[in-house]
Design a protein around this nucleic acid. Structure first.
Lengths: 158, 158
DNA sequence: TGTGAAACCAGCAGCTA
DNA sequence: TAGCTGCTGGTTTCACA
């Protein structure tokens, strides 16, 4: 559902909801010059058309004992479609993988991985890379600071 | 606020809210064996203690014309604290930067950047890298597929 | 815009560790 | 005692006409 052409009002609504999805319609309406009901109608439409993909709670990793984050670049042995597909599936089912991007360049995949500690990360690398004959090489970067973390998308009128 | 020791009930609640923050308390309660009021109390506490950092709407990038995603590794000229701090600030204010991690290894920062098209990305690299004398080198990977994108944190009882 | 339904929130009492 | 539960009434927010 690409480009569900959104007017400035929709964009203003989205820019609020991207920051705080609990903002009540009345408050948004006051800001953008719309009645609460009108705002709710637009939000409903944004949900139905898939512009708003989902609404989620963001959990502070440290608060649940997930103290370490890693950025891992992965290079596959061969770029056969089956190999890539199998790796995709593995990634999707593994809870430690927060994000995975299939990219151009020297690496094939870039992963963001969240673990309790180094031991857990080692277990992760074993099940994901060493036990997988199709992984040629991987490079780990330890995250020292999560400078900016979000899924916010730039909106022209944002 | 590290390790606000959460029991299995809290974890079960979080695992639902991480996927869909609009899940109503009654539904969660039915699943975990708790009254709606009790669930609401716990959610409130999780918000107040910062375990739930925020609740956000996730916007489908393509739906708002953001068709391209990039993973960019950045190496700074010198690792002086001022230089790093200045870069941090720039990152935080730039809407195209969705995520930024300060990492160990050959790169200093890893960015996830979202743009409408290549032209916009070129403008981004100019203002962020070329106009910044402290950036020694950067490497761009174009994202072909966002295999897995989220901020979900693994919960032991998840 | 307004009305009905639904979800959330605060106060109270009882139970358990 | 402290903390948590379930219950209930009052309020806010939402959804639909």
């Amino acid at each position: 559902m690409p480009d569900a052409d959104l007017d400035a009002l929709d964009q203003a609504i989205l820019s609020r909801l991207q920051v705080d999805s609990r903002t009540i319609a009345e408050s948004i309406g006051a800001q953008v010059g719309l009645s609460a009901a009108a705002v709710q109608r637009r939000i409903k439409r944004l949900r139905e058309t898939g512009v708003i993909a989902k609404e989620v709670a963001v959990v502070e990793p440290k608060a649940v004992g997930a103290h370490m984050t890693f950025v891992v670049s992965v290079e596959m042995e061969r770029e056969r479609i089956e190999v890539l597909e199998a790796f995709r599936k593995q990634v999707l089912t593994d809870g430690a993988v927060q994000q995975c991007y299939y990219v151009t360049g020297s690496a094939d995949f870039v992963l963001v991985v969240v673990c309790r500690d180094m031991t857990e990360f080692e277990a992760f690398t074993r099940r994901m890379f060493f036990d997988n004959g199709e992984v040629r090489h991987f490079t780990t970067s330890v995250v020292m600071d999560r400078v900016k973390v979000g899924l916010t998308v730039p909106l022209n009128g944002g």
